[in-house]
Design a protein around this nucleic acid. Structure first.
Lengths: 221, 221
DNA sequence: TACCGTGGTGATAGCCCTCTTACATTGACA
DNA sequence: TGTCAATGTAAGAGGGCTATCACCACGGTA
């Protein structure tokens, strides 16, 4: 891959150039935005191209097909998500259970804002592509969470019970994902609970906390 | 709605009749099957018609548009799901926590087998339709779960803490939904846990149990 | 037997999509 | 200055979908 010759597309010239200059990166960025708005199902290459003001054929100069573009988006999503979760854990303070639980809320917020979650990152369609970046990013993401799960269980030191941490991780991930998807699906507005992404994020965090500690006996109000 | 004149399509006559006879019911049934195979995103009226061996125009004799068909499917899914959950709770014995938790596993199995879950039943697209049957079925489903949640918390008698039951319900529902969707999404095959719908169902049940009781300290194995 | 309503059919308009092909434009560099 | 590779474009093949339209087959009934 050669270096980009002159990467500034908003230079002194008038309007748009014939060559976009950063189309590959822009495709990933815009695909990500589109995902946030309409979900993975409605994603289309043509729409991304139109939004960028290029022809619908242009993306195929950079990605052989739709799936490869999706894989690039997924890899980027995984990286960004990992950063958010790491940050959330850090912001949650020293208690390892709180650090772990906080990532559930952060996940819900991320999906709410970006539209891409575990379903996008680990989409089955993308598996046969064997994309290096995506595989790497996905593994890093899971390692981060597994590490936090181990610490939450207090088994970070020895080889105490690797299965317990894995089980907790799965419960945590699935609960967070459930909250995120049902929030965007509109269930919560029907059940009648708190509205908004923040309320949902708090619930997800509480759920994760409960996975480790159990349901609080006096959680009324 | 008039009575069906001669409802048996597989009678003594040769091959298929000009009139299907039970097309409306068959559309719902086949849509349900198709959902199980390809998910809600890939659902199309045309495909359902082809599978039934009728023209792609035929469904529009029974449903004004795609969404109304989907609503009928969703209502039916809700009814069927409620039956399964009720049965699972019954089979789980007398312990209210076990009864409640069992519905998580039953939900995962239902989604695995039928492809339709809360996302289909409470799909946002269907809300503007104001479908009576769907609204009714959805409410009945949630009432069933809420009741089980109350009993699991031991607050079935008085007005102890309605908010706690609602919170537990949400955590339970979202966890179950997360397990179901991530199972079909293929996450578990990557994380490396137990394969198959039964393993996932067991995990979901355990997660729900943990929501009430907390993570078991010695869950290794 | 004539006729009518229900529920089918084939054809088609209109839209969107993916991906390919031939061609145009550009910057880099000899 | 001329050439080339990279990266854009327009056009279109080929396909799927939703929904409509005029028409047809059949059962029931006057």
């Amino acid at each position: 891959m050669p270096e980009h010759p002159r990467p500034e597309p908003s230079g002194g010239g008038r309007g748009r150039r014939y060559h976009h200059g950063e189309l590959r990166a822009a495709l990933i960025e815009t695909s990500f935005d589109l995902l946030a708005e309409s979900g993975p199902a409605a994603f289309s290459v043509a729409q991304v191209a139109r939004r960028l003001g290029v022809s619908t054929a242009a993306p195929y100069r950079h990605f052989p097909d739709r799936d490869h573009l999706m894989a690039a988006v997924a890899a980027r999503a995984a990286g960004e998500l990992a950063g958010r979760l790491r940050q959330a854990a850090q912001d949650a303070g020293p208690d390892p259970v709180e650090r772990f639980a906080a990532t559930a809320g952060a996940y819900v917020r991320f999906v709410g804002a970006r539209g891409a979650g575990f379903d996008v990152i680990f989409a089955r369609d993308l598996e046969p592509l064997q994309d290096r970046d995506l595989a790497e990013a996905g593994r890093a993401l899971m390692d981060l969470l597994l590490d936090l799960a181990r610490q939450a269980l207090g088994t970070g030191l020895g080889t105490d019970s690797p299965q317990a941490a894995l089980t907790l991780l799965e419960q945590h991930v699935t609960a967070a994902h459930g909250y995120a998807t049902l929030h965007s699906g509109g269930l919560f507005s029907r059940v009648g609970s708190r509205e908004g992404i923040d309320g949902t994020a708090d619930l997800a965090t509480a759920a994760s906390r409960a996975l480790v500690r159990g349901a609080p006996a006096d959680s009324g109000g």
